[in-house]
Design a protein around this nucleic acid. Structure first.
Length: 922
RNA sequence: AGGACUAUAGCUCAGUUGGUUAGAGCGCUACCUUGACAUGGUAGAGGUCCCCAGUUCGAAUCUGGGUAGUCCUACCA
């Protein structure tokens, strides 16, 4: 074995092997366990957040696969309608080709080409992360099968009256030329203005003043509203005002939606361009006056003078025109929330168009019930509240998108505008007895990508066919996802699956935190702080990283800043850490929190952990290879205290890890493993094995026992660790397993270790704790007294119990080796002890004679520190025990514990003070 | 505006039903190339558990209030 762990070569070698041998596919077994991957965008690439999520799913999958479940991790990607179309459109633009010149069919072909070309990035990344996905079942939302499912669902919902078409106000993206759902609109505070305009009263006496943040919409005003109880304006209700620049007259209406305190208390009402005004318009029977076109330029029923102007240009012009007419009252600075498309970043316009909707309210009812009655549980539980809050106030879901890339809506129109929904034009004609000569045209729109993702858990398994896979693997076991898509995806999956399958899509929703950078900032391309998990695995030069972060930016002016922060944060680029270290870092950060700050220091620590594992295995192999490791169980063995102890600790660790996995606490699982492997197995057990293995006088039984424990415990914890660190464990396991009497092609398919309470040994634990106490006590004296580590010491023990004496007798060789002792002597009560530095283990005094070794003042200082600490403690405990309220009311066991503590402390204090006295007399 | 979450060592975070000497990793200090490992070993320093009040014999933990921060939802033209 190499002296240091070199992950790069090992990782790809093993992944290829696993995949080639088909280990990722379901292996049978009574109980099924399945996870459907949240499908990433097929043309995108994975970032740190994905890496985190994949690592968690893979750990769960590997854990359950080893635990004997019939395990499926379904892989696939989605077509990401808007995002992908945008990318391809931009590529074409760069060549001077517009999408419209190309035509729909050709354009879609180009998108497929792009998908073929770039689609490999994601799957390559997934493989590098070690994800044990069943590649043989890979799906894509635009595949024929999944497309059939989408069409089937659309048609059925339509026939059930749960999908309808209507002219409504939608969020219109004037750049992408499509409607988007509420969830795709991001509203953030921006600095703007509040313009106050005077609208003259019809008939010529006086005016009303309205305030608006979007002056251009005044062209579409249909009324001015005041509060019905607002005395200032009561006399005007029912009057008409002259709408400037338009030549129209509009009424003054009363509606209690109006806030009397805001602005002037008069609101201009533009039903076709504002969601609130739209509702009010419907209440009052106002006309919907559209004044925009698809580009959000002035159009529709706007006055001739403004037609064709961009909306912001029109804004300036209208303000100027009103000012010229003396109707501009004032302009105030105003902070307002501006709605922007999450993809295009452009200001969204409420816009009146024909769209398709899903009646979400109806579908939400059983979806709410499923979480209420526990059929689906969220982990952590608090996310259920988020889910309920949204679901109980759900809005109908606009599912049509004016895009070319996606599932085209299966609806046809005749010349009169009648709609026919069906599988194809032929079937529509047949079902509706339409004459062949009647012309039909298909709806141009496609469905929201989330519409197909909502079917993901069952469409990937072959639905609408009743496949065997559906029977076995649906509902899936758990959905692993971030809270940012609870509404987008989780809720919609639950609704759709319950409706079409009459069962839940998954039993558990595990909601993990969102990965942020070291400063707690969300990682985003525009901030330039994204990290590619592969760059942490393979490492990356600074120049390349800068290049990567500043390439292809939407806002090139930010490049300089990004370059600067990148150079500051990673002055030497990123070192290669390997997949196992990255994964372990993810797990260690996967606690219940909402944010996961990724700190580069953590991964370095776990890279070192990998190296530690590697070297521990090296040590074991050096001592076991070619030796009798007790594979032949008929031969006698003798197990040392350390052997029994480490086996016992292993059981505890197995129990801890099982508990952690069951509660999705990957941080606790990783911590339990780290602690056991490094702090128990490496720090203590390997050291304790040396006195046996290196002792020429040790019996063959003892050596056999130690080797067997050494190798078997190692083999077991490799399996225990494998779901979290798949590569290093496989690599080592291959050489270790035969010596541990195990056979098998891969660690992946070995049984997962289960704790055996019968192997827990509290007596061994206590003895080892004692041994550690003595060793640490001596090391402490050594350290604080600056005694060279190599210097062998003579140690005396005094005032010990029979138990202490037994422990010393049994463990003297270990003690001598680990504490570097020449001699240990047990003093009888009557023996006179020399002046010595002292450590206490219970009542037992460990004495390191001072002659020639130890500085009097240093030892006094050391003792004083210890005495001081004990006195503080004692004071606290005494205070507690002298409080009658405590003694009377606290449980007897607690009081008793405090009493024991006090006695021990008093005893220790006395012994140390005696020492102090003796040393002073020197 | 409503709601949620967070606040523990210099940094990133654990802390289960109230009883611990409040822990880990990283970082820091000192010493050490001892035959698995310097990506290492040994020892050590470092905390007003955000603040205030309450409940309790006892609070990092429970309750109320405050402060700071993060996020979500809905939005007033």
């Amino acid at each position: 074995m190499e002296k240091t762990f070199q992950p790069a070569e090992i990782e790809t070698r093993w992944y290829d092997e696993w995949e080639a041998r088909g280990y990722f596919a379901p292996q049978g077994g009574e109980k099924a366990y399945s996870i459907m991957i949240p499908p990433p965008n097929v043309t995108g690439s994975l970032h740190m957040g994905h890496g985190f999520q994949e690592a968690i799913m893979d750990a769960l999958i590997r854990y359950h696969r080893m635990a004997g479940y019939n395990t499926l991790w379904q892989v696939g990607t989605d077509h990401a309608g808007i995002a992908t179309q945008m990318v391809v459109e931009r590529q074409l633009e760069a060549q001077g080709i517009s999408r419209h010149e190309l035509g729909r069919e050709k354009f879609v072909e180009k998108v497929w080409e792009w998908k073929e070309q770039s689609g490999g990035t994601i799957t390559r990344q997934l493989r590098r992360l070690g994800s044990s996905l069943d590649w043989s079942r890979e799906r894509f939302t635009m595949d024929e099968g999944l497309s059939n499912a989408v069409q089937e669902v659309f048609i059925r919902l339509y026939r059930e009256g749960l999908i309808y078409r209507g002219k409504r106000l939608v969020n219109w993206d004037p750049v992408l030329h499509t409607a988007i759902s509420d969830l795709e609109v991001i509203s953030e505070e921006e600095q703007g203005h509040l313009w106050h305009f005077n609208y003259p009263l019809a008939g010529g006496e006086g005016h009303l003043t309205v305030a608006t943040t979007r002056p251009e919409t005044m062209l579409g005003d249909a009324a001015v509203a005041v509060h019905p109880e607002d005395e200032r304006y009561a006399h005007l209700i029912g009057r008409m005002v002259e709408l400037p620049l338009t030549g129209r007259e509009i009424p003054v209406i009363a509606d209690d939606y109006v806030d009397r305190e805001f602005g002037t208390g008069c609101v201009k009402i533009t039903p076709a361009h504002d969601f609130n005004d739209y509702e009010m318009g419907k209440r009052h029977g106002l006309p919907m006056i559209n004044i925009l076109d698809d580009d959000a330029a002035i159009g529709g029923e706007a006055p001739e003078a403004y037609l064709g102007m961009d909306r912001f240009e029109a804004r300036r012009k209208i303000v100027a025109d009103l000012d010229a007419l003396g109707l501009l009252e004032k302009i105030e600075d105003h902070t307002l929330k501006v709605p922007r498309g999450d993809r295009s970043g452009i200001v969204i316009e409420p816009y009146l168009t024909d769209q398709w909707y899903v009646d979400a309210r109806e579908l939400a009812k059983p979806a709410i019930a499923a979480v209420e009655n526990g059929d689906i549980t969220f982990v952590p539980k608090q996310w259920e509240n988020t889910y309920f809050a949204w679901m109980r106030d759900i809005q109908d879901w606009c599912i049509s998108r004016q895009l070319w890339w996606g599932h085209r809506i299966p609806a046809w129109y005749d010349d009169k505008g009648n709609v026919y929904v069906g599988e194809s034009e032929e079937s529509v004609r047949a079902e509706n007895h339409l004459a062949d000569e009647m012309s039909l045209h298909r709806d141009e729109d496609v469905l929201d990508t989330w519409f197909s993702s909502a079917l993901w858990t069952f469409s990937t398994l072959g639905w609408p066919e009743e496949t065997e896979e559906l029977k076995i693997f649906h509902p899936s076991s758990v959905l692993v996802t971030g809270f940012d898509i609870i509404f987008f995806w989780v809720a919609r999956m639950i609704m759709m699956t319950l409706h079409f399958r009459k069962e839940v899509p998954f039993h558990t929703v595990y909601v993990h935190g969102l990965v942020r950078d070291a400063e707690g900032q969300k990682m985003s391309k525009s901030k330039g702080n994204v990290l590619d998990p592969i760059d942490l695995i393979d490492g990356i030069e600074l120049e390349e990283l800068v290049q990567k972060r500043t390439a292809g930016m939407m806002q090139p002016q930010l490049a300089a800043k990004i370059e600067k922060t990148t150079r500051k944060q990673f002055p030497d680029g990123i070192a290669p850490y390997g997949t196992d270290a990255l994964r372990f870092t993810y797990f260690s950060l996967a606690s219940t929190g909402r944010d996961v700050k990724f700190d580069i220091g953590r991964i370095e620590g776990y890279r070192n952990f990998c190296n530690k594992i590697w070297n521990a295995a090296r040590y074991v192999m050096m001592n076991c290879e070619g030796e009798d490791c007790g594979q032949d169980e008929s031969l006698p063995i003798e197990r040392s205290l350390a052997d029994r102890w480490i086996v016992s600790k292993l059981q505890e660790t197995e129990a801890d890890v099982a508990r952690a996995f069951a509660s999705y606490r990957f941080d606790l699982a990783s911590q339990a493993l780290y602690e056991f492997i490094w702090n128990e197995y490496c720090d203590w057990y390997l050291e304790l094995s040396k006195p046996v293995l290196w002792d020429e006088n040790a019996s063959p039984e003892a050596k056999r026992g130690t080797r067997r424990t050494l190798i078997r415990v190692l083999e077991t914890w490799l399996r225990l660790l494998h779901p979290m660190m798949p590569f290093i464990t496989e690599e080592i396991w291959q050489t270790v397993a035969p010596l541990a009497g195990k056979s098998g092609e891969t660690i992946m398919l070995q049984p997962y270790p289960v704790a055996d309470p019968g192997a827990m040994d509290s007596a061994a634990n206590a003895d080892i704790e004692w041994l550690k106490g003595v060793i640490v006590g001596i090391r402490n004296i050594r350290g604080e007294m600056n005694i060279p580590p190599g210097k062998e010491l003579t140690v005396l023990m005094k005032n010990g119990s029979d138990e202490d004496q037994r422990r010393l007798t049994e463990n003297a060789p270990f003690l001598k080796k680990l504490a570097r002792l020449k001699e240990v002597t047990w003093l009888a009560a009557t023996d006179e002890a020399p002046v010595a530095a002292t450590a206490l283990v219970g009542e037992l005094e460990i004495l390191v004679p001072m002659a020639g070794l130890i500085d009097k003042d240093a030892e006094l200082a050391r003792l004083a520190k210890e005495v001081d600490r004990l006195e503080q403690e004692l004071k606290r405990v005494q205070g507690k025990l002298s409080n009658s309220a405590f003694v009377d009311k606290a449980p007897a066991a607690v009081v008793e514990k405090e009493r024991e503590k006090m006695q021990a402390q008093e005893q220790a204090l006395q012994q140390l003070q005696e020492q102090e006295r003796r040393i002073r007399q020197m």
